[in-house]
Amino acid sequence: MIGIGGQPLFMLPFGDIVLYFTPFTLTLFILALVFTVLVIISKPERQIDIVFGGDAYLAKEISISEMKFRRFMAIACGLASMGAMVTGDIFDFALFTSLVGICNVGIVAAVKSRHVQNAAYQYGLVAMSATVPLFAGAAIVAATTGTLSILELALPGATKVPLFVKALLTLGVMGEGMAPFYAAKAEMFRAPGAPYVIMCSLSSLLIFLRVIEVVLTV
């Protein structure tokens, strides 16, 4: 197999869906794994507001259930990005990507601030409309080439996927991975719980790197 991923080191077959580990995907997989473990063991930060012009400061009260819920979402997001890194099937990749998207919505939506929830809603709308180019792209790949497996598509003699279908897939992943745009707004980082919000950005970065590999390979 030629491509930027390199030779597959080993494969893990689940029926028609084969997970494969090339040096590239293995690196991303380990990154996601390390960060997921970090989320599991780390204690969330306690946010402190300093009252301007005085010595007083107050720690924002965050309920335990909110922290638990966001941690759960962050772990699910980490697992989803791990799956998206190594899957060898285009439709499965699309599904894992939308799972990353909905987990990111969950991480943000649990914050009890109207402004943050508005951001989560807008991001959720983008993530939902991004499933349209994702699934459409995967279906057109199946129709034009007759297969969905990335390994088959990477073989030298295989039918090449049309350029615009690759563009559809990339656009879909961009829509699902738009969370950092929302996090860039300072309000999102002011929302407490640092490791969880960083999980949003990291998973977006990972799925974006992976889709570049997929698009260059098929």
């Binding site: 939308s98 909905i102 939506a109 809603y121 959720g124 939902m128 499933t131």
Partner: peptide, 19 residues
Amino acid sequence: GLVVGIAELLALSQIYVTK
């Protein structure tokens, strides 16, 4: 595809009501 659509719709409608 159908189930993903309705799942996301469910989550977003509840976020809308809350927001």
